[in-house]
């Protein structure tokens, strides 16, 4: 994750806005779906290649994932404003 992410995003927004102003409304659903599935596949490959040494490391990491995500969600739901 880095700030390079802004480059394709800004290009996309500008292109989308230009297309909108020209009255064009392409359907991106299929293209986006396909790109997403490929991205998830490569993420899976990346995760699968991580060598995990020991049950403790695996269990602790999973517990951290569950409780940090859960803590964020609980606070988002519980604190209004």
């Amino acid at each position: 994750m880095n700030m390079n992410i802004f480059i394709p995003l800004i290009f996309g927004v500008v292109l989308g806005y230009a297309l909108k102003n020209r009255g064009k409304q392409p359907n991106l659903e299929r293209l986006t779906g396909l790109a997403l599935l490929l991205m998830i596949f490569f993420l899976g490959v990346k995760t699968g290649k991580v060598k995990i040494n020991g049950i403790w490391l695996l269990g602790t990491s999973i517990l951290f994932a569950l409780l940090t995500a859960g803590g964020s969600l609980l606070l988002a739901l519980g604190v209004r404003g």
Binding site: I5, P8, L9, I10, F11, G12, V13, V14, L15, G16, Y17, A18, L19, K20, Q25, P26, L28, L31, T32, A35, L36, M39
Partner: peptide, 11 residues
């Protein structure tokens, strides 16, 4: 993906 999301946001 990010580019396509940008296009969608722009549209």
């Amino acid at each position: 993906m990010i580019f396509l999301i940008g296009v969608d946001l722009g549209l």
